[in-house]
């Protein structure tokens, strides 16, 4: 599974430019789904059809993981070929300085800054620029509107993994692996790889409308409280996938939450509960789609979210797959 994780995290896919990620996922899902389609906003929707199982009521279940990652977009090019940019999603100045970014065509850029007013002052985004090593504006191929993302290779640290864009390629990888391991299911399971989550859950909104599920589970990352002097939070790397109770945008459906908890207990899988102060996931938009949908979230504990080097625990990832396979193999009566 590490091979899928490496491939997906290293792919280019800022919000609105997810084509490359979608193609990779489409290839991985080929043969694992009965139907695949792309909706008008760009969401990839793969359906694995139900196989009747005695005594189990078939449900329409939507699994969602977002393909997009945070990035930057060129807003202005000056005479010398330096590029000013606006952010796509929650990019923080702190993580940009000294970083490298890569454009869709492979062009590499370095982030520089204007002279600070005071020593040690931290610059805001509008005081930074991207330098792609242009000799002058004439030789520059990069233009206004072009999009770049962090560039950073995937590294296997043994038990822990680090990469850019675990948010939320790890969710995509978990969905793909679940499709691989799930031989049959009594439900119609829609594996939905969404677009534009980082700019406001936009893909979840349209895909939930199209799929019209009865039950939905988003798989995404959550922050942790297990690093030096961290904001107190009862989520740690390695303690199992986190079952969301609440975040900044939703309360998980109690029925979905206990379905997850009971299944994890039954299978003897480690798990923890997540109460997140800020932030939210695709499940928020899905929950309020149409007449309302029972939705919950399986979160992968992740350190350093929205930086070029996010970190997850491989055991948490594998246990999330086991939990999903368990959930989809039995009754889903919420």
């Amino acid at each position: 599974m590490k091979e899928i994780i490496k491939e997906l995290t290293e792919a280019f896919g800022a919000s609105g430019s997810e084509d490359g990620v979608r193609e990779r996922i489409r290839q991985r899902m080929a043969g694992r789904a009965d139907e695949m389609r792309v909706d008008p906003l760009g969401n990839l929707i793969a359906l694995k059809k139900r196989k009747r199982q005695k005594g189990v009521q078939a449900r329409r279940i939507m699994l969602a993981a977002h393909m997009d990652e945070i990035g930057v977009m060129i807003s202005h090019v000056d005479e010398k070929g330096f590029l000013r940019f606006t952010r796509i999603g929650g990019v923080r100045p702190l993580t940009l300085l000294g970083s490298r970014v890569v454009f869709a065509d492979g062009t590499i850029g370095v982030i520089g800054r204007e002279k600070p007013e005071k020593q040690d002052e931290f610059p805001s985004i509008d005081k930074m620029f991207i330098d792609v090593g242009a000799i002058d504006k004439e030789h520059l191929t990069t233009k206004v509107g072009d999009v770049a993302v962090f560039t950073r290779p995937f590294s296997d640290l043994g038990q822990r993994l680090t990469a850019k864009a675990f948010d939320d390629r790890i969710g995509c990888a978990i969905l793909v692996q679940t499709a691989v391991e799930l031989e049959t299911t009594p439900h119609d399971v829609y594996f939905v790889f969404t677009v534009q989550e980082e700019v406001g859950l936009r893909g979840a909104l349209t895909s939930a409308f199209g799929v019209e599920p009865e039950v939905a589970i988003a798989v995404d990352v959550t922050t942790t409280g297990d690093t030096p002097d961290a904001r107190p939070m009862a989520v740690s790397l390695g303690a199992g996938p986190a079952i969301k109770v609440k975040d900044g945008g939703m309360l998980a459906h109690p029925g979905v939450k206990s379905w997850m908890t009971d299944t994890a207990d039954r299978l003897g899988l480690p798990h923890q509960f997540e109460v997140l102060e800020g932030g939210t996931t695709d499940a928020m938009a899905i929950q309020t789609s149409r007449a309302g949908i029972a939705a919950g979230v399986i979160s992968i504990p992740c350190r350093y979210v929205h930086t070029p080097s996010e970190m997850v625990d491989y055991g948490d990832v594998q246990n999330a797959v086991k939990l999903l396979v368990g959930l989809l193999s039995g009754p889903a009566d919420i």
Binding site: D39, P40, L41, G42, N43, R202, G203, L205, T206, S207, F209, G210
Partner: peptide, 8 residues
């Protein structure tokens, strides 16, 4: 652009 299943 977010109407129903999305509109280009």
């Amino acid at each position: 652009h977010l109407h129903n299943e999305g509109v280009p």
